[in-house]
């Protein structure tokens, strides 16, 4: 289990996270939501150890993460940020093989090859195996990077806005893949996501952040309600429930107030 206690983070004079204490339930998909500048990505970066907290402590399984060698940490927590701009000339298979780096340091064993195959099959990328990633569409490239992270075979997966710039089909494909990783393989997934509807329909747990602090958190059913979302985004919401899930309508909700 990943937990934070009294975590602060500042860039220069700018306070980004302010006394955040929270626990992420294991074996669930947790979405971090909130308006721009709420500190969602920073929180994720702290867990990924891409940034260090100014104050406070993060723990993984009861152990302070700063005390875990980065090499071992990579066997427990995998992070995917937006794919780099640098146009890399690598095949999908080569990219996915990077996921084995924490184990193999570059010398792939039979077990590594198996993990690579599994990750590629899991996302049905067999046909693209030998394609170069700089020739793929944005959605396919994001899938390839996700496959790399899956091949890392970690208990925890952190994703920073994995749906950015994707078409609807690929966004749904990615979210379903994350759901399956959780349901079929028991992995813990934490992601930053902008679209409230994706968060509401595919996650178990939601952490809503506003101005550097946790605004509210809990199981989806508990957080996704008109009052909470209105406070969070300063927008009116109308939540339409059906058998299959929720749709949060914030475009022209019937309860609309004047926007100030």
């Amino acid at each position: 289990m990943i937990s934070l206690s009294h975590v602060y983070k500042a860039y220069g004079n700018q306070q980004v996270l302010n006394d955040v204490s929270i626990e992420f339930p294991p074996g669930q998909v947790t979405s971090l939501i909130g308006p721009n500048g709420a500190g969602k990505t920073t929180l994720l970066m702290l867990i990924a150890r891409l940034q260090a907290p100014t104050r406070g402590e993060l723990k993984l399984g009861g152990r302070s993460i700063a005390s875990i060698p980065i090499r071992d940490y990579a066997k427990q927590v995998a992070t995917l940020r937006q794919a780099p701009e640098f146009n890399l000339r690598l095949t999908v298979e080569e990219l996915v093989a990077f996921g084995r780096f924490p184990y193999s340091r570059g010398n792939l064993t039979a077990a590594d090859h198996q993990a690579i195959d599994e990750a590629i099959t899991f996302l049905s990328l067999q046909a693209l195996r030998l394609s170069y990633i700089d020739e793929l569409s944005g959605g396919q490239r994001q899938m390839a990077f996700l496959a790399m992270t899956i091949a890392q075979q970690t208990d925890y997966l952190l994703l920073d806005e994995p749906l950015n710039n994707l078409d609807m089909k690929h966004a749904v494909l990615i979210m379903r893949a994350l759901r399956r990783l959780c349901d079929e393989q028991g992995r813990t997934v934490i992601l930053v996501v902008h679209d409230i509807n994706f968060a509401a329909n595919y996650s178990d747990h939601i952490v809503a952040m506003k101005r550097g602090a946790v605004h509210c958190h809990g199981p989806v059913a508990q957080v996704v309600n008109e009052a909470c979302l209105r406070d969070l985004f300063d927008l009116d919401f109308e939540i339409l429930r059906s058998e299959q899930g929720f749709v949060c309508n914030y475009f022209n909700p019937s309860t609309s107030r004047e926007l100030i």
Binding site: L50, K75, F86, P102
Partner: peptide, 16 residues
């Protein structure tokens, strides 16, 4: 090769 993925991805893959 891992470094060419950029700082964030490299750290995430366990590179000091």
């Amino acid at each position: 090769d891992v470094l060419s993925l950029g700082r964030d991805q490299a750290i995430s893959l366990g590179v000091d």
